[in-house]
């Protein structure tokens, strides 16, 4: 299958079930809402090293803002239920509570699984905190030097999907980066989808385990490293000199499929030779995103 001269490999991205929460952050201005969101989602690229994966989902239109102020929606993902509460308390406590003018709300009110966040952070108020119940939901007003920090008591959590991906195999590093940037632009601000890596792009795709160390759970994906073509079992076609990966997490598989379709379509441009995807032969993750099926040109492998 070719798309504008770019070969779409007959393969699939293999993704995992994760837990996802949607965090809504509002602030006096879009600047401060974004500042808190960027800090909340900093160092949250991969559960391997960060214990969570998170990124900005989109800016909220004012009509969707819980308190009428500029807001940002964040998707926050962990591997298990138990992790979610710990990570949210740590991160919201250190990055949103501390950020001027912000407030923090649950963005998954229908999710039956609820994890306490404000119920723990309220103790920072040292007994001066005030509870308010609105629409059946409890909120905590925590006095801070600036004024008050408002945080919802519980946040919804549901199953999500982490690890959707595709690889851009390009003639040069410049071409790979341009294609990746175009893909990210096409995939950003979609409801239900985040790209947790820097700028939405990964240059260091990994394989499971290591050729030399038994303790490493992941190491460089040597089959896709152009500099190792001559010394390893390479998966790279001729003329490929650079590979970038886009990793996509989401609230559900259809959201990821739709984002991959838009991203791959945007990435198929001059200088790109092929689009591939990372998988573990279907042994590890239950969600399989077949590239040709997603792009409308083939049956599931």
């Amino acid at each position: 299958m070719n798309l504008r001269g770019v070969f779409i490999e007959d393969t699939f991205a293999e993704a995992f079930t994760m837990r996802v929460a949607r965090i809504l952050i509002t602030g006096r201005s879009a600047r401060w809402a974004r500042e808190a969101a960027l800090n909340l989602t900093g160092f949250a690229t991969s559960v391997i090293g960060c214990k969570c994966e998170a990124a900005i989902e989109r800016e909220l239109p004012l009509r969707e803002s819980p308190d009428g102020r500029p807001g940002i929606s964040v998707l926050f993902m962990t591997m298990g239920k138990d992790d979610m509460g710990k990570r949210l308390i740590e991160r919201i406590g250190q990055t949103v509570l501390t950020c001027p003018t912000t407030a923090c709300y649950d963005g998954l009110p229908e999710a039956p699984d609820r994890v306490g966040v404000g119920s723990a952070l309220r103790h920072f108020g040292d007994g001066f905190q005030i509870s308010k119940v609105l629409g059946g939901e409890r909120f905590w007003r925590i006095p801070v030097m600036e004024g008050e920090f408002l945080v919802q008591e519980k946040f919804g959590m549901q199953k999500g999907v982490g690890g959707g991906n595709f690889l851009i195999l390009a003639r040069s590093a410049d071409a790979a980066l341009e294609a990746a940037e175009a893909a990210v632009d096409a995939m950003s601000s979609r409801t239900g989808v985040i790209l947790p890596f820097p700028g939405g792009v990964v240059r260091s795709g990994s394989k499971v385990g290591s050729l030399r160390s038994k303790t490493m759970i992941a190491s460089t994906n040597d089959a896709y490293c152009p500099t190792l073509r001559a010394v390893t079992t390479s998966a790279l076609p001729e003329q490929v000199n650079s590979v970038l990966e886009i990793v996509i997490n989401g609230t559900d598989a259809p959201a990821i499929s739709a984002a991959m379709r838009a991203g791959i379509d945007a990435a198929c441009r001059d200088g790109v030779l092929a689009i591939s995807a990372g998988n573990y032969n279907g042994k590890l993750g239950p969600h399989h995103f077949h590239l040709r099926e997603i792009m409308g040109g083939g049956e599931p492998a």
Binding site: G68, R69, R141, G147, F149
Partner: peptide
């Protein structure tokens, strides 16, 4: 006590 903008009022007024 002070003069400020309580965030919880924005939530209540919006509702």
């Amino acid at each position: 006590a002070c003069t400020y903008r309580p965030a919880h009022l924005g939530l209540t007024l919006t509702r």
